[in-house]
Simulated scan of single mutants.
Amino acid sequence: MDLATQLGMARPTNIRKFIETHRDELESFGQVARTECSLPMPGGRGFKTGTEYHLNRNQALLTCILSQTPAGREIRAEVIRRFDAYEGMVEVVRAVTDPRRRKGQAVASPDPFNPPLTEARKAR
């Protein structure tokens, strides 16, 4: 529920329903670990049994990205900014390390997400 609280969910316990709804996608980043736990009841009237989920870093990030909370929007924007910054750094490294650029030739930068097919990949 720490993540739910940080995301500003109106009811932090709703994170459990959220995780179950997105379980297949979350598990594409590893097993979603869960344990049974005792949760205090409101007003100090004892405890009830509940489920506690343990997400890894990628699963937590995916939860933040899918979250429809104001904090989730901020996290999505930060992911996009960092991705743009990364792409900018990749272009600088290519410019510095490409020997054709040193000779003054114009070089088209390949798309890092759609690299050119190698002979091995073309054969598949």
Rank of each mutant, 00 (worst) to 15 (best):
L61M: 14
L26M: 02
A85C: 10
E87G: 07
Q6S: 12
E87W: 08
G8S: 05
E74V: 13
R16M: 08
M1T: 12
R121A: 11
A71Y: 04
L117Q: 07
D111A: 15
I19R: 01
Y53N: 02
K48Q: 04
G46P: 15
A120F: 10
A85P: 12
G46H: 12
L7T: 04
F18Q: 00
R82N: 14
L55F: 14
A33S: 09
T21F: 08
Y53G: 03
P42L: 05
C37V: 12
R102M: 10
Q6N: 12
Q68K: 14
V90M: 05
E78R: 12
E74L: 14
F113T: 10
F113N: 09
D111E: 13
S109W: 12
D98V: 01
V90S: 06
Q105W: 06
R94A: 11
R100A: 09
V96S: 11
I80H: 07
E36A: 11
R101A: 05
L26H: 08
E87P: 07
Q59Y: 14
P40E: 02
L62E: 00
D111S: 14
L62F: 04
E20S: 10
R23C: 09
D2Q: 13
Q68C: 08
G72T: 01
R102G: 09
R100I: 00
R45F: 06
H54R: 11
F47I: 07
E119S: 10
S28P: 06
H54A: 13
M9Q: 01
K48F: 02
L61Y: 13
R124W: 11
G88H: 05
E36M: 13
P115Y: 13
A10Y: 01
V32F: 09
F113G: 08
L117F: 06
T97A: 06
V96A: 13
T49Q: 10
T49I: 04
A60Y: 01
L62D: 01
K103W: 15
V93P: 02
Y86I: 07
Q59A: 08
P12N: 01
R101H: 05
V93A: 01
A123V: 00
P40Q: 00
T63M: 03
D84K: 03
R45V: 08
P110A: 11
V90T: 15
R73I: 09
E87L: 03
F83G: 04
A77S: 04
H22R: 05
A106Y: 13
R82C: 14
A108I: 08
E27G: 04
S28G: 12
T69W: 01
G30A: 11
F113D: 03
R76Q: 00
D24I: 03
T13C: 13
R16Q: 15
T97W: 10
K48T: 02
A108P: 06
G50Y: 03
A95S: 07
R11W: 01
T5M: 06
T35F: 11
I65H: 06
P115V: 06
R23E: 10
L55S: 09
G43Q: 05
E36K: 12
G104D: 10
K122L: 05
D111T: 14
E20R: 12
A120V: 04
L3I: 07
R34Q: 11
